[in-house]
Structures are given as structure tokens and as C-alpha cells.
Amino acid sequence: MVTSSLLMHILNGLAYGMLLFMIAAGLSIIFGLMNVVNLAHGAFYLAGVYIAYSLVARHMGFWPSLLVSVAVVAILGVLVEKWLLERVYGRELEQVLLTFGLSFIFADLVEWIWGSSPLTLPVPEALDVSLNVGGMMFPAYRIFVILVGCLLAVLLWYIESKTRIGAIIRAGVDDREMLSALGININVVFTCMFAVGAALAGLSGVLGGPIMGMYVGIDAEILVSSLVIVVVGGLGTWKGAFIGAIVIGVVDTLGRVWFPSFTMAMVFLIMIAVLLMKPNGLFGRGAAA
């Protein structure tokens, strides 16, 4: 029984890790490519899940709500990048402050519109069943989230290493000036990447809604975990984000079961250990900022 409940916790951890992966991947690439520590990334998660909640509550169905919500968050990302971030490129601290301010505005707006009591997104009907995993019943929805995460990882890996777009992004992480000197319109690349990052965070929010629930403050929790993942995995790489997210997701979930008060401390210790051994993270590209 002990092993099967451990398996259960690990599966839960994987599901949580996949949600974190979707956020951390965007955060990491935005950081690596644009040198922006986007502290508003948690707010995109928040926006994703709350917009989906409102749509589902209006009987729109889970899947259409997911699409609409992700699209809205992507547009939000474009607006933030075009209207605000673009004006302060190259000025690191100002970018941090800007996104920090935005995260407050978004979080407080969400509290204003939807109230501060916790809500949950219902599990989509088709997946509202339990599967038999090693003698224990496990929600199919979480398995689905794990699959989506893995699929996304493969897709992102393929784009990163096999396509022209991926080559542009890798080149951008290594040397921005050189990339624009080669005739690539770096502004378009930045806007697209920021939108993709935002959309991934929104997707994570919607998919995470039925698992994590939604409440004010979850954005900060998610953001901090994702920042830890970026530091652990190394900036500018999807592989690092994937491995880091799995490690942090599983440790966090096991921590919640065994030492509820010190979950964050365990996650933090992992970060410190990695940082002391490999200052650039496990799979870091380029020098530490």
C-alpha cells in the first residue's frame, strides 16, 4: 500500500510539475531571449484560469473556454509587450519593476472582479473518471495533464532544435545584437515569444484550475516556483525548464504530504544546492546574468 500511495503522490507531483513546466518554459525563454525577468508571468496564469472560469460558468464548455482563454491571455501578452515592455528594453531593473507593478494590478483586478474566496474549475466531463493505477484509483484528468505536458515538451524540443524558428530563438539567447545584425526583425521575435510565453502560462492556468483551484495569491506561489525552476534548470532552455519542473513539482508535492510547513524550504534548498554547484543551472546556456 505504501508504494502505491507513493506512486500516487509522484503522479500528482508530475501533474503539478507539468503545470509548472508550461509556465517556467515561457519564463525561461523570455528571460533568456529578452533578458526580462517577467514577474507578471504568474498574473497570466491567474488571468487564464479566471477567464476560463467565467466562460465555463456561462455554459461554454471546458474545451472552447480553454481555447478562448488562452487566446485572450496571448493577446494580453502582446499588449503588455508592445505597450509597456518595449519602451524599457535594455534597462533590466526597470523591466523588473514594470512587470512587478503589473502583477499587482492584475492580481488586485482579479480579486476585484471575482472576489477573494477560492473557486475551482470543474473537471471536463469526458475526463471526469478515475483510472486504475497500480491498484489505486487515480483521476484521469491528471494523467491527461501529464500527457499534455510531455507532448508539449516534445513539441517545444522539436521546434527549438529542428526548425528555423528554433534556430532564431537559440541564436537570440546567445547573442541578440548579432541576430538583428543578420537581418532578423528582433522586435517581432520578441513579441511572438512573449505572446507564446503568456499563452503557455494561460494554458497552465486553465489546465491547473481543476487541480489547484484558484485563489488570490496562487499567482505568487506559481511564479516563485517557476523562478526556482528557471534558476535550477538554467535560463533560455526548454529542456532545463522540463527537468527542473519535474524535480520541483515532485519535491513540492511530496513535501506537502510529509512536511507541510517546510515545502517551500525544501524547494529552496534544491535551488541553493544547484546554484552552488552549477551557477548557470543544470542546463544553462550562456553566462549567468
Partner: peptide, 26 residues
Amino acid sequence: IRSSGAYFLMITLAFGQMLYAIAYKM
């Protein structure tokens, strides 16, 4: 202090939130 710039910022942020989580949950 080995790290600087954005890394220092992220690490101190995580550190603060860790203490927050401990104070919140204990």
C-alpha cells in the same frame, strides 16, 4: 552574493517567499 543582477533578485525573492510560506503554514 555569488550571483548578481537578475539572479540575485530572483533568489532573494524566492528566499523571502520561503520564509513567508513557513510563517504562513506553521
